[in-house]
């Protein structure tokens, strides 16, 4: 059993004045030891809500993890754990890097103290031990002159340096799972490249499993082993990074891939996903993507597609994979990519 984390039938709702927003509607996935799983999708697709629920960071006042949802980690169901028990896991076994390094550090605390905090709390380190470990961690994330820097405040660092510090805090207790929520979106491309290299390098060294949330497909191609595509509160396609980029099956994934110009896109118009994401206050009947899908069939309006199997590692929720579905031509950019994929399968089995 090499699954470190398993999410089963996760359903989450938010209670608002307008009614119940069904943000997550039956999400299933697993995270294997040592792998990087990228979750992609547009804003509102539920990627951040999913990961926040793993950390149990959703606001108590208006959010609800539905009965029957399972987040299995280390033999425990995190969805049902008490706050006290969760505190022992959060920041120790599972930790998180947030998007904005400017706001995720405490501006009034020296950075050394912020790195030492989880060590003293979770691992019963003495102050001196914690400082020693903080120095090691700063070295590990590539911050020069750690002896001096450890006594400085966050405002004395640049954005890229701050993100390195945030990573050092997250890695302090050698977590088994690291959740990175758009860790490079706020950074410049050159700095982004450094941070991505650093994360890959660290993963090799300490063997952590990473869940990487992003909407940048370039970043996905560079870091991910597997990819899950989310739309309207569900995972609509999941597969290895090659399967998703070279042999994607879901029309939404096609749209994402072909709406970005590649290196050799020429003068032709960009492929556009028309319309806007579904309203999860009243989730549409049938396939949530049907309204924006130019390949939609009659059945998409009435019945939700199940996950069809494409290969042992590749699944997609679209009726196009049903044995009775008509043959269609995917967008040109997708067809071009398919030529790079050996032995591709077009029809799946349920």
């Amino acid at each position: 059993m090499n699954n470190i984390l398993e999410v089963k039938d996760l359903n989450i709702s938010f209670h608002t004045y307008a009614g119940e927003v069904q943000a997550i509607r039956g999400v299933n996935f697993e995270l294997k030891k040592g792998e990087t799983l990228a979750i992609v999708g547009e804003s509102g697709s539920g990627k951040s809500v999913t990961t926040k629920s793993i950390m149990r960071l959703l606001p108590k006042s208006n959010s609800e993890i539905k009965q029957g949802s399972q987040i299995l980690f280390d033999g425990k169901n995190l969805a049902e754990l008490s706050d006290k028990a969760m505190e022992k896991i959060r920041g120790k076994d599972i930790s998180m890097i947030f998007q904005d390094p400017m706001t995720s550090l405490n501006p009034t605390m020296k950075i050394g103290k912020q790195i030492a905090e989880p060590l003293i709390k979770h691992q019963n380190f003495s102050k001196a031990q914690a400082k020693q470990r903080a120095l090691e961690l700063l070295e590990l994330v590539g911050l020069p002159n750690p002896e001096i820097r450890i006594n400085q405040y966050p405002h004395q660092f640049s954005g890229g340096q701050r993100q390195r510090i945030v990573i050092a805090v997250a890695l302090a207790c050698n977590p088994k799972v690291l959740i990175a929520d758009e860790p490079t979106t706020a950074l410049d491309v050159t700095i982004q490249a450094q941070i991505l290299d650093l994360m890959k390098d660290l993963q090799n060294k300490i063997d952590t499993s990473i869940i990487f949330i992003t909407h940048d497909l370039g970043v996905v191609a560079s870091v991910a082993d597997r990819v899950a595509v989310m739309y309207g509160g569900k995972i609509v396609e999941v597969g290895t990074v090659d399967e998703i980029f070279y042999n994607s099956q879901h029309p939404y994934t096609w749209g994402l891939i072909s709406s970005m110009p590649s290196i050799d896109t020429e003068d032709d118009e960009l492929f556009v996903i028309p319309g806007s994401p579904p309203d999860l206050l009243n989730p549409p009947k049938g396939d949530a993507f049907a309204a924006r899908n130019r390949y939609a069939m009659a059945i998409d309006q009435s019945e939700e597609p199940p996950m069809f199997k494409v290969s042992n590692t590749h699944y997609a929720a679209t009726w196009l994979l049903h044995p009775d579905a008509p043959e269609i031509d995917p967008p040109e950019a997708v067809q071009r990519r398919r030529k790079q994929f050996p032995g591709n399968v077009t029809k799946g089995e349920k």
Binding site: A221, S222, M260
Partner: peptide, 22 residues
């Protein structure tokens, strides 16, 4: 250096990418 830092949505290309620093 700037061009070598951009990740492109192509896993094969990404595996071969060599980053330059300036």
């Amino acid at each position: 250096s700037l061009l070598s830092s951009i990740p492109f949505p192509d896993p094969d290309y990404e595996r071969q990418r060599v980053r330059k620093t300036y």
